[in-house]
């Protein structure tokens, strides 16, 4: 992922709602939008809290999580359709349930040794700098 060639894969373009998430990733922290009233995490970021439905005074911040979770499901992408990935090795893409909250889910590539993948397998977050100023969170199995 950090080889010599110029990085030619799509990079995230943060927006008003997601800037806090990507800024934290840049500091190598996985964080999610959290409601200041009831503590519910949300991903992707929401305009009002799905936990307490506070419409009048939404109070959100991005809070760091452990990055640990379990695998909900996965696929192995063998037929690449994204520029920069064409011809690349198969990608193991996992949906992970973060330990902090039952419905806090995040999908990303599973890196490292993927041979032990199973439903419910524990994973941890690894954040990598893929290009100047661009970092992405990945997951890897906890042996």
């Amino acid at each position: 992922m950090s080889d010599e060639r110029e990085y030619d894969r799509p990079v995230p373009v943060p927006d008003e709602m997601t800037a806090g998430f990507w800024e934290a990733v840049g500091r190598h922290e996985l964080s999610f939008q959290r409601c200041g009233h009831c503590g519910t995490y949300a991903h992707p970021p929401v305009s009002f809290c799905v936990g307490c439905h506070n419409l009048d005074q939404p109070a959100f911040s991005f809070e760091k999580v452990s990055g640990c979770g379990t695998i909900v499901n996965w696929t192995v992408i063998t037929d690449q359709m994204v520029s920069g990935f064409i011809g690349a090795d198969p990608i193991v893409h996992v949906l992970v349930r973060l330990d902090e909250q039952e419905d806090l889910l995040f999908p990303a590539t599973l890196i490292g040794d993927t041979s032990g993948i199973t439903l419910g397998a524990p994973v941890e977050t690894v954040i990598r700098d893929v290009a100047p100023g661009v970092s992405l969170p990945y997951f890897q199995l906890i042996p």
Binding site: T18, T75, I77, V82, G84, H93, L136
Partner: peptide, 25 residues
């Protein structure tokens, strides 16, 4: 459904950087 380009905006910021875009996936 192929994705071309380097900037992944909107909902695709969570998927295209991982080579993941197709409904089939």
């Amino acid at each position: 459904n192929s994705f071309e380009g380097l900037g992944a905006k909107g909902s695709q910021q969570w998927s295209a950087p991982y080579g993941f875009v197709a409904p089939s996936s």
